[in-house]
């Protein structure tokens, strides 16, 4: 049986630079709070956007669907919250510590998970994430159901007072842009080309002499570290780390964001994250209905809208987005 793998639309049109669009996106994001959009909302959405971009690096460019990415978001969250609150580290060092912690976990989990492909890979990551969840549920330093509350913000790099919302906003935006550009650079590098080759035809990549397991592991660890960067930043923004970030629902949410925006597109995860976070804000009063609506979006996307918003736009405009 032939199957169509999950991959971005590859238009026949000549390659066009995405730089103007990236610049435009950054400019729009930068002025959002000045236009009266609640900065806290944009910061939260930016953290999730980075999280979704990190997830998308795996599904879009290596063809691996991780159903356990919440473990990296949550691990970095707990690590940086602990570093900032208990050890009193500066915010940038706390974020760095959280990112490294998730990267290290990514190497460990990756070593196990990349031994299987496709559907088994998804189930494995989901199960390992659940194991991590139970660990945090029982561990002392996470304070169980209470979480780590009142994480201090302090001075970013010793000069920026991130207790001021607008300063914090631009710091978060800078972190998001740095992460986004790193991913963009990665997928357009020789390393990224090899990843795409593995996605398209792994046996062939192996026959060309590439040790595909190493490339997959490197991509997995990078994705984990960047998801960690998002999680650590999110904790500095919300000032608390809780079990919500490690639950399987969170792993599902990042899949949904990326699916809505467009799997394997450059801007899709960002668009998807803003849509889903906005939806949660407006529908918060409906309680459990949010889950039902998310489920309906999942079903609708898979049945009728597999390219996602940005993927459809890319098809209409006949270019990579």
């Amino acid at each position: 049986m032939t199957t169509t793998p999950i991959k971005p639309v590859s238009p026949a049109a000549p390659e066009r630079s995405e730089t103007p669009i990236i610049m435009g996106m950054i400019a729009v994001l930068a002025v959002l709070p000045l236009l009266g959009v609640y900065p806290y909302f944009v910061m939260q959405a930016l953290c999730f956007a980075l999280f979704a971009c990190a997830f998308n690096l795996l599904i879009g460019y290596v063809g691996l669907l991780s159903f356990g990415h919440a473990m990296f978001l949550g691990t970095a969250g707990y690590a940086s919250a602990h570093a900032a609150k208990v050890w009193g580290l500066a915010p940038e060092l706390s974020i760095l510590f959280g990112t490294l912690a998730s990267g290290a976990l990514g190497v460990l989990v990756g070593l196990i998970a990349i031994r299987r492909q496709g559907i088994y890979f998804s189930m494995t990551t989901l199960a390992l994430a659940q194991m991590i969840y139970f660990f945090y549920l029982q561990a002392k330093f996470t304070h169980g159901e209470d979480g780590i509350q009142g994480v201090p913000r302090g001075l970013f790099l010793g000069v920026l007072d991130i207790s001021k919302p607008l300063v914090l906003f631009y710091v978060v935006l800078a972190i998001f842009v740095a992460g986004f550009l790193l991913i963009y650079r990665t997928i357009n590098s020789p390393f990224g080309e090899i990843l795409k080759a593995i996605r398209e035809n792994e046996p062939r990549a192996i026959s060309l002499g590439y040790r595909t397991a190493r490339y997959k592991l490197a991509a997995f660890a990078l994705s984990a570290a960047l998801a960690g960067l998002a999680g650590a930043t999110k904790v500095i923004v919300s000032q608390n780390a809780s079990l919500t970030d490690v639950r399987w629902e969170m792993s599902g949410e990042v899949v949904l964001m990326t699916l809505v925006g467009g799997l394997g597109t450059i801007f899709g995860p960002v668009v998807g994250a803003f849509i889903i976070i906005a939806m949660q804000q407006y529908l918060a009063e409906f309680g459990q209905w949010v889950l039902v609506i998310q489920g309906v979006i999942f079903v609708a996307c898979v049945l009728a809208f597999r390219r996602g918003i940005v993927g459809e736009a890319a098809k209409v405009l006949r270019r990579n987005l």
């Binding site: 169509t4 669907l65 599902g252 459990q288 889950l291 039902v292 998310q294 489920g295 999942f298 079903v299």
Partner: peptide
């Protein structure tokens, strides 16, 4: 004929709908 992962995503969505409705 589609990638197997779409089946996982679709049934995940169904699980969210069913569980959400019962929780409501």
């Amino acid at each position: 004929g589609l990638d197997h992962l779409y089946g996982l995503l679709l049934t995940f969505g169904l699980a969210l709908i069913i569980q959400g409705l019962f929780q409501n």
